[in-house]
């Protein structure tokens, strides 16, 4: 069974959609079957990936019984990555997603739609709300997006408390996959100091080594609606996502290598 990861943050505009798309694409290139589901009614994933060119059907239509799973799961050219858009075309579609978040149908839908993939990334709406809670309810882990801005970081407790509550009440599998710093401006001394503090204060196991720097190329990739690596000169800018994907793999490997007590040590065969 694959892993469902919610890409989430307390604030909007920190690069959730960009991260979900680029990380998913990278893991797809590494040989995994990957699905991205846009649960954000703003529908940024459809714009970031040019999905609208292919279909306007998405999660909202599925939840309203207007579309089947195969109509909303759109495989990309390489076949490894598939995307489900939010399908928000009318105001009523937003309400459909929110209603389904509250009454449990979104969780049911996500469980049904995500079967058979190695990785599923849920691109969650910013902040805390019923849709985010539903995303957490079906997820194995949360990638928490951070920006090195003190005011943003001060809003973390309520977000972490929500995660803790969902884990305690609804989904004991929920883990914090890692906190990821994005849009980092290395030449800003304030950001450097905040990053230094974060690395010293957030347990290493919960803090990605990889930092996604701020780069104008991301805006170009958004305009052209492609993952960064597909831009003609985007390889260097996309590199942090390759490193992030490798770091995730490394963590998974280490999680599975918990070791055993001497008396229980088993051989290879």
């Amino acid at each position: 069974m694959g892993r469902i990861l919610t890409v989430s943050s307390q604030k909007g505009g920190v690069g959730k959609t960009t991260t979900a798309l680029n990380l998913a694409y990278t893991l797809g290139r590494l040989g995994n079957r990957v699905l991205v589901v846009d649960t954000d009614p703003q529908g940024g994933m459809a714009l970031a990936s040019n999905l609208r060119k292919k279909t306007t059907l998405g999660l909202a239509q599925y939840l309203q019984g207007e579309a089947q799973a195969e109509e909303i799961i759109s495989p990309t050219k390489d076949g490894a990555l598939s995307i489900i858009g939010a399908g928000v075309n009318e105001a009523s579609d937003i309400l459909a997603i929110e209603d389904a978040s509250r009454d449990g149908r979104l969780e049911e839908a996500l469980r049904a739609l995500t079967a058979g993939f190695d990785y599923v990334f849920l691109d969650a709406p910013a902040g805390i709300g019923s849709t985010v809670i539903a995303d957490f309810g079906v997820s194995d882990g949360v990638i928490l997006m951070l920006q090195c801005r003190s005011l943003l970081l001060k809003s973390l407790p309520i977000f972490l408390k929500l995660m803790r509550q969902v884990r305690s009440d609804r989904n004991p599998r929920l883990q914090l996959e890692g906190a990821l710093v994005t849009m980092w401006k290395g030449d800003d001394p304030l950001e450097r100091e905040i990053l230094e503090d974060l690395t010293r204060s957030v347990p290493e196991a919960l803090f990605f080594r990889t930092v996604i720097p701020y780069d104008d190329h991301f805006e170009q990739a958004s305009i052209r609606a492609v993952p960064m690596i597909l831009l003609p000169d985007g390889r260097d800018t996309a590199r942090p996502y390759l490193e992030l994907a490798m770091e995730m793999k490394e963590r998974e490997l280490l999680r599975g290598m918990g070791g055993s007590k001497d008396e229980h040590t088993e051989g290879l065969f």
């Binding site: 003190s150 970081l153 001060k154 809003s155 973390l156 407790p157 972490l160 408390k161 995660m163 803790r164 883990q175 914090l176 906190a179 304030l190 100091e193 905040i194 230094e196 503090d197 974060l198 204060s201 957030v202 347990p203 196991a205 919960l206």
Partner: peptide, 22 residues
């Protein structure tokens, strides 16, 4: 003391982070 360490919100967040360590 650094920028963040004086923040009670951040201290609370860092405590909460530890809840998620296996």
């Amino acid at each position: 003391m650094s920028i963040l360490k004086d923040s009670s919100e951040l201290k609370e967040a860092f405590d909460l982070f530890r809840d998620f360590v296996e």
